[in-house]
Design a protein around this nucleic acid. Sequence first.
RNA 1: GGCCCGUUGGAGAAACGGUUAACUCACCGCCCUCUCAAGGCGGCAUUCACGGGUUCGAACCCCGUACGGGCUACCA
Length: 550
Amino acid sequence: MTTSMKLAKLIFPRVVDTIDTLEHKYPHRVLPEGAMVTRFAPSPTGFLHTGSLFASLISWRLAQQSKGCFFVRLEDTDQKREISGSGDKVLEEMDTFGITPDESFVHGGAYGPYIQSERKPIYDIVIKHLIETNRAYPCFCTHEELDLIRKTQEALKENTGYYGVYAQCRNLSHETAIERIMAGEKYVIRFRSPGDPNQRVSVTDVIRGTIEFPENIQDIVIMKGDGLPTYHFAHLVDDHFMRTSHVTRGEEWMASLPIHVQLFDTLGWQRPIYAHLPVIMKLDDGKRRKLSKRKDEEASVRYFLEKGYPIEGFLEYLMTLANTDFEEWRLQHLEDDIFDFNLDFSKMSLDGALFDLEKINSISKECLGRMSAEEISKKASLWAKDYRPDFYEAIQSDSAYFTRIMAIERGGDKPRKDYDKYSDIFPIIQFMYDPYFFEAINQVQPFDPRYDREKIIDVLQAYLEKPGLELSEEAWFENLKALALNHGFAPKPKEYKKNPDQWLGHVGDFAEIIRIAVSAKKSTPNFFHILQILGYNRIAQRISHTISLL
RNA sequence: GGCCCGUUGGAGAAACGGUUAACUCACCGCCCUCUCAAGGCGGCAUUCACGGGUUCGAACCCCGUACGGGCUACCA
């Protein structure tokens, strides 16, 4: 037995399996030609980040489009930062957006476990092999020693890190290492980098093309003091044995590419195809910066859920960021499912897109405008159930009534577009519910001061005598104009503008008096429909109540 | 500091060596209009961060500079 084998055995006394066992246990996936195996690998540090939703949407779609496989793996190797339960929460939130993995730590799958902390036996096998073959070694440097190394490097203006002459433990003999471990010294395992500082590696990224880097010369830590792997090493092992074909991740990982390809190459494993996605940015004080979970509420997907953005609209916005030609396609295919569009790496933008709330609003508005009355009623109700109990209660009191309200000028080529999000609905239509109307009208009657009490009553009573609810919308309006004329209001605003002195106002002013009396608001959706839905009795009731307040 | 990546109007962007530099959002103007929400029409980059070069011809190719971003942990 060689000394390196003795060392490996000392560190991993119970590991008997070999890399070959793993290769057999996790065979290549049998999938159709061109199928992509993608993944989303969140760390359980909180709620789903908007950027993560973006990345997972892309990965999920890519796998689906190609009849491949999309899985979610929990990267929980940093116990210090872990927030318990957040892994499940992330999966739940993805699920509300319809992004469902084929395999995950809750869905299961043949390439598990899908939680890194449970994969330690797998990492151990690979690390043991690396030590046996002298490509990894224990390092006994303490944090203080490492700190000192960094400081001297900084003082000397050299690159920081564990490499070359600074890699003190690299040349420790196996015997010494064995002795120090037996003596109970703490250690980590480092990868012995074969890199040459004068050589360059090229790596292909499907979005950015070929990138050249100096070779990695750092002896990076692959196993931490707590026995868990670092990200770099877990990426190597997991994406190899989980048979990931395309690694889609944020562009912040690009700089570690030299490390990752070195790892894959020295193990003789095929490199995955890399796709580094642009990071979503935000404009702050004139400067662009990454959306920050701590500072920006919109960095959390929850924010949009709470605000009541339609799921479909939010995904559609993300799709416009994902592929630059999506928007044009959408214009041609308004009725189609947004996922009939084929995502393509070549159409992904290279620099981080600014997150544009205005645009999300606009897309969401179009999206809500396109829904049928039944659909928007149902979805608004589901939203309200979670976030606006008073609204929910109002809807539930008579859901057919709510649907009638939502149906106003809906459908057809040019539907009304009153709402960006579900939370906009209630403020606009709550006057349709009696308790809200009476409360509002009791507080203030915003009538135009040009008209005195008598005039207002006069107008309201005149309308009550001839409401025209049974007429067509056109005829109803003709009736309104006639009433207006009888009371000294010009039937057309233009006529009033020509001779303002001849009139008390115009038909719009006349209608406003009725509108306020019936809704406590100066603006409503299509007034004719509103009146029809309220019905004569409630209109009369509201008007007489309003008069009693004057 | 070093190493990478990026830079077309306020925002997302098209263009693939030859176009009046698409389109969407925002903004502005006009029109339509009983309020509102819409809708219609038009405007908004004499120029593609800047400087040089290659070419008959450059937003597109090359070099340099500036600016922005990322990484530079026993975090991911």
